[in-house]
Design a protein around this nucleic acid. Structure first.
Lengths: 196, 196
DNA sequence: GTCTATATAGTGATAGAC
DNA sequence: GTCTATCACTATATAGAC
Protein backbone atom coordinates (compact mmCIF):
# COMPACT_ATOMS: atom_id res chain seq x y z
CA UNK A 1 0.00 0.00 0.00
CA UNK A 2 3.01 2.26 0.17
CA UNK A 3 2.57 3.48 -3.39
CA UNK A 4 -1.00 4.57 -2.77
CA UNK A 5 -0.08 7.73 -0.91
CA UNK A 6 3.31 8.68 -2.31
CA UNK A 7 3.10 12.37 -1.39
CA UNK A 8 2.51 11.95 2.35
CA UNK A 9 5.43 12.65 4.67
CA UNK A 10 7.18 9.66 6.21
CA UNK A 11 5.65 10.35 9.62
CA UNK A 12 2.39 9.06 8.17
CA UNK A 13 3.16 5.55 9.33
CA UNK A 14 5.05 6.42 12.42
CA UNK A 15 4.10 5.89 15.99
CA UNK A 16 3.45 9.57 16.25
CA UNK A 17 0.76 9.48 13.58
CA UNK A 18 -0.79 6.41 15.16
CA UNK A 19 -1.07 8.42 18.34
CA UNK A 20 -2.59 11.41 16.58
CA UNK A 21 -5.28 9.26 15.02
CA UNK A 22 -6.13 7.55 18.30
CA UNK A 23 -6.25 10.94 20.00
CA UNK A 24 -8.60 12.27 17.34
CA UNK A 25 -11.15 9.55 18.12
CA UNK A 26 -10.87 9.97 21.87
CA UNK A 27 -11.07 13.76 21.75
CA UNK A 28 -14.09 13.56 19.51
CA UNK A 29 -15.90 10.99 21.65
CA UNK A 30 -15.04 12.23 25.13
CA UNK A 31 -13.78 15.73 24.59
CA UNK A 32 -10.23 16.93 25.08
CA UNK A 33 -10.57 17.85 28.75
CA UNK A 34 -12.15 14.54 29.73
CA UNK A 35 -9.56 12.50 27.87
CA UNK A 36 -6.59 11.74 30.10
CA UNK A 37 -3.06 10.97 29.05
CA UNK A 38 -3.71 7.53 30.51
CA UNK A 39 -6.60 7.08 28.08
CA UNK A 40 -4.32 8.07 25.23
CA UNK A 41 -1.58 5.69 26.25
CA UNK A 42 -4.09 2.90 26.65
CA UNK A 43 -5.43 3.43 23.15
CA UNK A 44 -2.05 2.81 21.56
CA UNK A 45 -0.76 0.29 24.08
CA UNK A 46 1.77 2.30 26.01
CA UNK A 47 2.13 3.84 29.43
CA UNK A 48 1.07 7.43 29.90
CA UNK A 49 4.60 8.56 30.65
CA UNK A 50 5.82 7.26 27.30
CA UNK A 51 3.61 9.69 25.43
CA UNK A 52 5.88 12.50 26.46
CA UNK A 53 8.70 11.12 24.40
CA UNK A 54 6.59 11.85 21.29
CA UNK A 55 4.89 15.06 22.45
CA UNK A 56 5.99 17.62 24.98
CA UNK A 57 2.48 18.33 26.29
CA UNK A 58 -1.05 17.04 25.97
CA UNK A 59 -1.98 20.22 24.15
CA UNK A 60 0.64 19.52 21.52
CA UNK A 61 -1.31 16.37 20.68
CA UNK A 62 -4.51 18.37 20.37
CA UNK A 63 -2.89 20.83 17.99
CA UNK A 64 -1.48 18.01 15.89
CA UNK A 65 -4.95 16.47 15.61
CA UNK A 66 -6.46 19.76 14.52
CA UNK A 67 -3.75 20.50 11.98
CA UNK A 68 -4.26 17.06 10.49
CA UNK A 69 -8.03 17.57 10.33
CA UNK A 70 -8.05 20.89 8.54
CA UNK A 71 -5.03 20.27 6.34
CA UNK A 72 -6.21 16.93 5.01
CA UNK A 73 -9.68 18.31 4.35
CA UNK A 74 -8.18 21.21 2.43
CA UNK A 75 -6.09 18.78 0.43
CA UNK A 76 -9.14 16.71 -0.47
CA UNK A 77 -11.15 19.77 -1.42
CA UNK A 78 -8.41 21.15 -3.64
CA UNK A 79 -8.18 17.81 -5.42
CA UNK A 80 -11.95 17.61 -5.90
CA UNK A 81 -12.14 21.17 -7.21
CA UNK A 82 -9.35 20.47 -9.69
CA UNK A 83 -11.41 17.67 -11.14
CA UNK A 84 -14.67 19.64 -11.32
CA UNK A 85 -15.24 21.94 -14.27
CA UNK A 86 -18.71 23.50 -14.00
CA UNK A 87 -19.59 25.86 -11.11
CA UNK A 88 -22.40 23.48 -10.17
CA UNK A 89 -19.92 20.63 -9.76
CA UNK A 90 -17.56 22.76 -7.72
CA UNK A 91 -20.39 23.72 -5.40
CA UNK A 92 -21.29 20.09 -4.99
CA UNK A 93 -17.68 19.30 -4.16
CA UNK A 94 -17.70 21.78 -1.27
CA UNK A 95 -20.59 20.01 0.41
CA UNK A 96 -19.49 16.49 -0.42
CA UNK A 97 -15.89 16.81 0.73
CA UNK A 98 -16.76 18.67 3.90
CA UNK A 99 -19.46 16.25 5.02
CA UNK A 100 -17.35 13.22 4.25
CA UNK A 101 -14.44 14.64 6.18
CA UNK A 102 -16.74 15.32 9.10
CA UNK A 103 -19.05 12.31 9.09
CA UNK A 104 -17.22 9.65 7.09
CA UNK A 105 -15.45 6.57 8.41
CA UNK A 106 -12.48 7.24 10.67
CA UNK A 107 -12.91 10.96 10.27
CA UNK A 108 -12.57 12.50 13.70
CA UNK A 109 -9.85 15.10 13.29
CA UNK A 110 -11.88 17.83 11.62
CA UNK A 111 -14.60 17.55 14.24
CA UNK A 112 -11.98 18.04 16.95
CA UNK A 113 -10.69 21.09 15.12
CA UNK A 114 -14.18 22.58 15.13
CA UNK A 115 -15.36 21.71 18.60
CA UNK A 116 -12.28 21.86 20.84
CA UNK A 117 -11.08 25.26 19.76
CA UNK A 118 -11.46 26.68 23.26
CA UNK A 119 -8.82 24.32 24.61
CA UNK A 120 -6.14 25.64 22.29
CA UNK A 121 -3.72 28.10 23.86
CA UNK A 122 -3.33 31.56 22.39
CA UNK A 123 0.19 30.66 21.33
CA UNK A 124 -0.93 27.76 19.18
CA UNK A 125 -3.91 29.40 17.50
CA UNK A 126 -2.25 31.52 14.78
CA UNK A 127 -0.79 28.53 12.92
CA UNK A 128 -4.16 26.80 12.94
CA UNK A 129 -5.96 29.95 11.84
CA UNK A 130 -3.72 30.10 8.78
CA UNK A 131 -4.78 26.59 7.84
CA UNK A 132 -8.44 27.35 8.43
CA UNK A 133 -8.30 30.55 6.37
CA UNK A 134 -6.75 28.66 3.50
CA UNK A 135 -9.64 26.21 3.56
CA UNK A 136 -12.27 28.93 3.74
CA UNK A 137 -10.62 30.82 0.89
CA UNK A 138 -11.32 27.84 -1.37
CA UNK A 139 -14.95 28.03 -0.32
CA UNK A 140 -15.15 31.76 -0.92
CA UNK A 141 -13.79 31.48 -4.44
CA UNK A 142 -16.29 28.82 -5.45
CA UNK A 143 -19.19 30.71 -3.92
CA UNK A 144 -18.19 33.93 -5.64
CA UNK A 145 -18.03 32.18 -9.01
CA UNK A 146 -21.42 30.58 -8.45
CA UNK A 147 -22.95 33.90 -7.44
CA UNK A 148 -21.48 35.53 -10.54
CA UNK A 149 -23.11 32.79 -12.59
CA UNK A 150 -26.44 33.61 -10.94
CA UNK A 151 -26.81 30.25 -9.22
CA UNK A 152 -26.96 31.40 -5.60
CA UNK A 153 -27.52 34.57 -3.55
CA UNK A 154 -25.04 37.43 -3.84
CA UNK A 155 -24.25 37.85 -0.14
CA UNK A 156 -21.48 35.28 -0.43
CA UNK A 157 -19.46 36.16 2.65
CA UNK A 158 -22.39 35.67 4.98
CA UNK A 159 -23.46 32.74 2.87
CA UNK A 160 -20.09 31.07 3.39
CA UNK A 161 -20.41 31.42 7.13
CA UNK A 162 -23.98 30.16 7.28
CA UNK A 163 -23.27 27.21 5.02
CA UNK A 164 -20.18 26.17 6.95
CA UNK A 165 -22.17 26.53 10.17
CA UNK A 166 -24.89 24.28 8.76
CA UNK A 167 -22.34 21.66 7.79
CA UNK A 168 -20.39 21.84 11.03
CA UNK A 169 -23.54 21.35 13.03
CA UNK A 170 -24.46 18.10 11.25
CA UNK A 171 -22.25 16.20 13.67
CA UNK A 172 -24.75 17.08 16.37
CA UNK A 173 -27.70 15.36 14.76
CA UNK A 174 -26.58 13.14 11.88
CA UNK A 175 -26.87 9.42 12.57
CA UNK A 176 -24.76 7.18 10.44
CA UNK A 177 -27.16 4.29 10.96
CA UNK A 178 -30.05 6.36 9.60
CA UNK A 179 -31.61 6.30 6.13
CA UNK A 180 -29.71 9.25 4.76
CA UNK A 181 -26.24 8.66 3.30
CA UNK A 182 -23.56 11.32 3.54
CA UNK A 183 -23.34 12.00 -0.19
CA UNK A 184 -27.11 12.07 -0.48
CA UNK A 185 -27.33 14.58 2.34
CA UNK A 186 -24.64 16.73 0.72
CA UNK A 187 -26.77 16.89 -2.42
CA UNK A 188 -29.92 17.80 -0.52
CA UNK A 189 -28.16 20.52 1.43
CA UNK A 190 -26.85 21.92 -1.82
CA UNK A 191 -30.38 21.98 -3.22
CA UNK A 192 -31.48 24.17 -0.34
CA UNK A 193 -29.18 26.96 -1.46
CA UNK A 194 -29.48 26.75 -5.25
CA UNK A 195 -31.98 29.01 -7.00
CA UNK A 196 -33.16 26.03 -9.03
CA UNK B 1 -39.40 46.40 37.86
CA UNK B 2 -41.22 43.59 39.63
CA UNK B 3 -44.31 44.02 37.49
CA UNK B 4 -42.33 43.58 34.30
CA UNK B 5 -41.98 39.83 34.65
CA UNK B 6 -45.03 38.78 36.64
CA UNK B 7 -45.07 35.19 35.43
CA UNK B 8 -41.55 34.20 36.58
CA UNK B 9 -41.28 31.85 39.55
CA UNK B 10 -40.09 33.34 42.83
CA UNK B 11 -36.69 31.67 42.54
CA UNK B 12 -35.92 34.27 39.88
CA UNK B 13 -34.37 36.55 42.47
CA UNK B 14 -32.97 33.91 44.76
CA UNK B 15 -29.36 33.12 45.43
CA UNK B 16 -29.81 29.99 43.38
CA UNK B 17 -30.71 31.94 40.28
CA UNK B 18 -27.83 34.32 40.87
CA UNK B 19 -25.56 31.31 40.84
CA UNK B 20 -27.09 29.92 37.67
CA UNK B 21 -26.51 33.17 35.83
CA UNK B 22 -22.92 33.45 37.01
CA UNK B 23 -22.34 29.85 36.01
CA UNK B 24 -23.77 30.50 32.56
CA UNK B 25 -21.17 33.19 31.91
CA UNK B 26 -18.29 31.13 33.25
CA UNK B 27 -19.29 27.99 31.39
CA UNK B 28 -19.64 29.95 28.18
CA UNK B 29 -16.31 31.73 28.54
CA UNK B 30 -14.14 28.92 29.89
CA UNK B 31 -16.13 25.79 29.22
CA UNK B 32 -17.78 23.57 31.81
CA UNK B 33 -14.80 21.29 32.40
CA UNK B 34 -12.35 24.13 32.88
CA UNK B 35 -14.59 26.00 35.27
CA UNK B 36 -13.98 24.86 38.83
CA UNK B 37 -16.35 25.05 41.76
CA UNK B 38 -13.88 27.55 43.20
CA UNK B 39 -14.42 29.76 40.17
CA UNK B 40 -18.16 29.50 40.67
CA UNK B 41 -17.99 30.36 44.35
CA UNK B 42 -15.70 33.24 43.60
CA UNK B 43 -18.10 34.68 41.07
CA UNK B 44 -20.91 34.98 43.60
CA UNK B 45 -18.74 35.70 46.65
CA UNK B 46 -18.89 32.43 48.53
CA UNK B 47 -16.62 29.53 49.33
CA UNK B 48 -16.69 26.53 47.01
CA UNK B 49 -18.09 24.27 49.70
CA UNK B 50 -21.11 26.50 50.16
CA UNK B 51 -22.26 25.84 46.62
CA UNK B 52 -23.27 22.37 47.61
CA UNK B 53 -25.97 23.68 49.86
CA UNK B 54 -27.73 24.96 46.71
CA UNK B 55 -26.80 22.20 44.30
CA UNK B 56 -25.90 18.59 44.95
CA UNK B 57 -23.28 18.38 42.18
CA UNK B 58 -21.51 20.61 39.70
CA UNK B 59 -23.42 18.90 36.92
CA UNK B 60 -26.73 19.93 38.50
CA UNK B 61 -25.62 23.53 37.97
CA UNK B 62 -24.87 22.82 34.32
CA UNK B 63 -28.29 21.29 33.79
CA UNK B 64 -29.97 24.26 35.47
CA UNK B 65 -28.11 26.64 33.16
CA UNK B 66 -29.17 24.69 30.10
CA UNK B 67 -32.79 24.42 31.15
CA UNK B 68 -32.86 28.16 31.70
CA UNK B 69 -31.30 28.81 28.30
CA UNK B 70 -33.65 26.75 26.21
CA UNK B 71 -36.81 27.42 28.23
CA UNK B 72 -36.45 31.18 28.24
CA UNK B 73 -35.66 31.23 24.52
CA UNK B 74 -38.76 29.16 23.83
CA UNK B 75 -40.80 31.56 25.93
CA UNK B 76 -39.51 34.55 23.99
CA UNK B 77 -40.13 32.87 20.65
CA UNK B 78 -43.67 31.91 21.55
CA UNK B 79 -44.37 35.49 22.59
CA UNK B 80 -42.88 36.90 19.37
CA UNK B 81 -44.84 34.46 17.20
CA UNK B 82 -48.06 35.37 18.96
CA UNK B 83 -47.52 38.97 17.97
CA UNK B 84 -46.60 38.23 14.35
CA UNK B 85 -49.39 37.69 11.83
CA UNK B 86 -47.89 37.16 8.38
CA UNK B 87 -45.68 34.12 7.63
CA UNK B 88 -42.89 36.52 6.66
CA UNK B 89 -43.01 38.13 10.10
CA UNK B 90 -43.04 34.78 11.85
CA UNK B 91 -40.00 33.70 9.87
CA UNK B 92 -38.23 36.89 10.86
CA UNK B 93 -39.11 36.24 14.50
CA UNK B 94 -37.35 32.85 14.38
CA UNK B 95 -34.07 34.42 13.35
CA UNK B 96 -34.36 37.52 15.50
CA UNK B 97 -35.24 35.76 18.76
CA UNK B 98 -32.68 33.02 18.31
CA UNK B 99 -29.78 35.34 17.53
CA UNK B 100 -30.63 37.72 20.34
CA UNK B 101 -30.85 34.86 22.80
CA UNK B 102 -27.48 33.63 21.60
CA UNK B 103 -25.56 36.85 21.00
CA UNK B 104 -27.41 39.53 22.99
CA UNK B 105 -26.35 41.10 26.25
CA UNK B 106 -26.10 38.76 29.22
CA UNK B 107 -27.20 35.84 27.09
CA UNK B 108 -24.93 32.95 27.90
CA UNK B 109 -27.29 30.15 28.88
CA UNK B 110 -28.42 29.08 25.42
CA UNK B 111 -24.84 28.91 24.20
CA UNK B 112 -23.99 26.62 27.10
CA UNK B 113 -26.97 24.42 26.20
CA UNK B 114 -25.65 24.10 22.66
CA UNK B 115 -21.95 23.65 23.27
CA UNK B 116 -21.62 21.72 26.53
CA UNK B 117 -24.02 18.93 25.68
CA UNK B 118 -21.30 16.30 25.95
CA UNK B 119 -20.82 17.03 29.64
CA UNK B 120 -24.42 16.17 30.48
CA UNK B 121 -24.95 12.71 31.95
CA UNK B 122 -27.29 10.29 30.24
CA UNK B 123 -29.65 10.56 33.20
CA UNK B 124 -30.11 14.30 32.80
CA UNK B 125 -30.50 14.42 29.04
CA UNK B 126 -34.14 13.34 28.54
CA UNK B 127 -35.59 16.31 30.41
CA UNK B 128 -33.48 18.72 28.37
CA UNK B 129 -34.35 16.96 25.13
CA UNK B 130 -38.03 17.55 25.87
CA UNK B 131 -37.37 21.27 26.18
CA UNK B 132 -35.29 21.34 23.02
CA UNK B 133 -37.92 19.45 21.04
CA UNK B 134 -40.56 21.91 22.16
CA UNK B 135 -38.45 24.76 20.83
CA UNK B 136 -37.75 23.07 17.53
CA UNK B 137 -41.42 22.23 17.09
CA UNK B 138 -42.16 25.97 17.02
CA UNK B 139 -39.58 26.32 14.28
CA UNK B 140 -40.96 23.42 12.28
CA UNK B 141 -44.49 24.83 12.30
CA UNK B 142 -43.40 28.23 11.05
CA UNK B 143 -41.22 26.72 8.33
CA UNK B 144 -44.01 24.42 7.18
CA UNK B 145 -46.41 27.35 6.90
CA UNK B 146 -43.86 29.41 4.97
CA UNK B 147 -43.16 26.52 2.61
CA UNK B 148 -46.89 26.06 2.04
CA UNK B 149 -47.06 29.76 1.18
CA UNK B 150 -44.29 29.23 -1.39
CA UNK B 151 -41.78 31.46 0.37
CA UNK B 152 -39.01 28.94 1.02
CA UNK B 153 -37.88 25.49 -0.11
CA UNK B 154 -40.09 22.47 0.60
CA UNK B 155 -37.52 20.29 2.37
CA UNK B 156 -38.42 21.88 5.68
CA UNK B 157 -37.09 19.24 8.05
CA UNK B 158 -33.59 19.44 6.65
CA UNK B 159 -34.03 23.17 6.29
CA UNK B 160 -34.81 23.46 10.00
CA UNK B 161 -31.62 21.63 10.87
CA UNK B 162 -29.43 23.59 8.51
CA UNK B 163 -30.85 26.94 9.60
CA UNK B 164 -30.48 26.16 13.28
CA UNK B 165 -26.94 24.99 12.59
CA UNK B 166 -26.17 28.27 10.83
CA UNK B 167 -27.52 30.26 13.74
CA UNK B 168 -25.82 28.17 16.41
CA UNK B 169 -22.49 28.59 14.71
CA UNK B 170 -22.66 32.39 14.73
CA UNK B 171 -21.23 32.37 18.25
CA UNK B 172 -17.99 31.11 16.73
CA UNK B 173 -17.44 34.09 14.47
CA UNK B 174 -19.78 36.94 15.35
CA UNK B 175 -18.05 39.93 16.98
CA UNK B 176 -20.28 42.20 18.97
CA UNK B 177 -17.92 45.11 18.40
CA UNK B 178 -18.16 44.73 14.63
CA UNK B 179 -20.27 46.69 12.16
CA UNK B 180 -23.14 44.24 11.95
CA UNK B 181 -25.88 44.44 14.60
CA UNK B 182 -27.70 41.33 15.76
CA UNK B 183 -31.10 42.31 14.34
CA UNK B 184 -29.52 43.38 11.08
CA UNK B 185 -27.73 40.07 10.79
CA UNK B 186 -30.95 38.20 11.51
CA UNK B 187 -32.58 39.99 8.59
CA UNK B 188 -29.70 39.23 6.23
CA UNK B 189 -29.66 35.57 7.20
CA UNK B 190 -33.38 35.42 6.55
CA UNK B 191 -32.83 36.93 3.10
CA UNK B 192 -30.48 34.09 2.25
CA UNK B 193 -33.29 31.55 2.56
CA UNK B 194 -36.22 33.48 1.06
CA UNK B 195 -37.05 32.95 -2.61
CA UNK B 196 -37.28 36.72 -3.00
C1' DG C 1 -26.88 29.62 54.70
C1' DT C 2 -22.01 30.08 54.86
C1' DC C 3 -17.60 29.02 56.77
C1' DT C 4 -13.21 26.15 57.59
C1' DA C 5 -10.93 22.15 56.95
C1' DT C 6 -10.22 18.13 54.68
C1' DA C 7 -11.18 13.49 52.55
C1' DT C 8 -10.55 11.10 48.27
C1' DA C 9 -9.28 10.68 43.87
C1' DG C 10 -7.39 11.96 39.78
C1' DT C 11 -4.45 15.05 36.75
C1' DG C 12 -0.25 16.27 33.55
C1' DA C 13 4.35 15.70 33.59
C1' DT C 14 9.22 14.10 35.05
C1' DA C 15 13.42 11.06 36.22
C1' DG C 16 16.03 7.41 35.55
C1' DA C 17 16.36 2.33 34.64
C1' DC C 18 16.37 -0.68 30.80
C1' DG D 1 11.53 4.14 22.63
C1' DT D 2 9.14 2.34 26.54
C1' DC D 3 8.67 1.22 31.42
C1' DT D 4 8.20 2.01 36.48
C1' DA D 5 7.55 5.04 39.95
C1' DT D 6 6.28 9.15 41.58
C1' DC D 7 6.05 14.28 42.15
C1' DA D 8 3.34 18.31 42.59
C1' DC D 9 -0.91 19.89 42.01
C1' DT D 10 -5.85 20.37 41.39
C1' DA D 11 -10.46 18.58 41.29
C1' DT D 12 -15.28 17.64 43.41
C1' DA D 13 -17.49 16.83 47.37
C1' DT D 14 -18.28 16.23 52.53
C1' DA D 15 -18.47 17.15 57.78
C1' DG D 16 -19.26 19.83 61.35
C1' DA D 17 -18.75 24.49 63.57
C1' DC D 18 -21.07 28.81 63.62
Amino acid sequence: MSAVEPTRPPEENSRRMELIRAAASLFRDQGYERTTVRDLGNAVGMQSGSLFYHFRTKEEILVAVMALGIASTTEQLAAALAQAAAPRDKLAALFRVHLNSLLGDNQAALEVMLYEWRSVSAAAKPALVVLRDRYEALWQQVLDDAAAAGMIKQDTRLLRRTLLGSLHWTVQWYRRDGELGVDEMAERMLQLVLFE
